[in-house]
Design a protein around this nucleic acid. Structure first.
Ligand SMILES: [Mn+2]
Ligand SMILES: [Mn+2]
Ligand SMILES: [Zn+2]
Ligand SMILES: [Zn+2]
Lengths: 145, 145
DNA sequence: TTTCATATTTGTAATCATTACAGATTAATA
DNA sequence: TATTAATCTGTAATGATTACAAATATGAAA
């Protein structure tokens, strides 16, 4: 338990979300595992501690979190949604081989664009990401050669 | 038929892809409909002209096109893959309301990053997109008020 | 042309993530 | 305590995509 439970509870109550046990566990998991996990990763980890946990609850909870800007949904893989509690503006790197998503902190001039217009369209979110082969996979390949 | 068939045929033969009737029709559709269509949109349009067309063929063909860099797969909606034959570097705007994807031509310094390293990861693709409400939907909302 | 091998297309079934829904459980309120 | 609302749970349905095998078309040798 890396993250303080009181902070997590406050994060929910501040947004008028009832801090139920399931919600606290899911949010705690997200804060302690900043690897952009899938619903399955979250569920499979928590079901050990909470055997009654339902996958539907994970989906429902993440939907509430997303609507309240507690998590960001990342849909760059094309297969499943990944979840991110890092709400600071940042980019991502998706490894085509191992499917890991890394944070890339390149400071952009986001503030210039966000909530403004771009060709008449109202911008609410800015997403940027790179695809390729990650450092670790590159090194694994080297060893094979 | 806006695009010249000879050009389309050459595009395939240049990459050693047999220019079958189905493949030509799909590629022609993509060139004439630069709206980032879904598999369903492509299939439903083409099945009128080619009643034997199979949706699996659309999937197979787009996979071959993607592997040969004839189309780009866009996975920003989270629900289904959209396809783009505009291979010049450009950004996208996804409208949360009507789900239309618009091209946004902001010149980036892509060439500085592509095929180079970023924190040790090998970058092969750069993606950037915005989410919000598009011009047309904003205007439709105005009328309602 | 006929024969045979190969590539492509097609239709159906399977898979997998996500959503819909209704009943069970829990919490809040009177 | 009794009543009501919110939350959670399990299962069924949905929808996009993939797997697979049979049907069809293509193309080269004989
Ligand atoms: Mn992140
Ligand atoms: Mn485009
Ligand atoms: Zn990797
Ligand atoms: Zn719109």
């Amino acid at each position: 338990m890396i993250t303080n439970m009181k902070h997590i509870k406050k994060e929910l109550t501040d947004k008028n979300i009832k801090p139920t046990y399931q919600r606290l566990c899911i949010l705690e998991y997200l804060h302690d595992n900043l690897v952009h996990p899938t619903v399955d990763m979250i569920y499979n980890k928590l079901v050990d501690r909470i055997p009654t946990m339902s996958k539907t609850t994970v989906y429902n909870t993440l939907k509430i979190f997303s609507e309240n800007n507690i998590v960001n949904e990342i849909t760059i893989t094309g297969t499943e949604t990944r979840y991110d509690t890092n709400c600071k503006s940042h980019q991502h790197f998706l490894c085509k081989k191992c499917k890991k998503i890394y944070d890339i902190n390149i400071t952009y001039q986001d503030s210039e664009i966000i909530n403004k217009d771009i060709f008449g369209h109202k911008v609410q979110e800015i997403h940027g990401y790179f695809k390729g082969i990650c450092k670790q996979c590159l090194e694994n390949d080297k060893i094979k050669d």
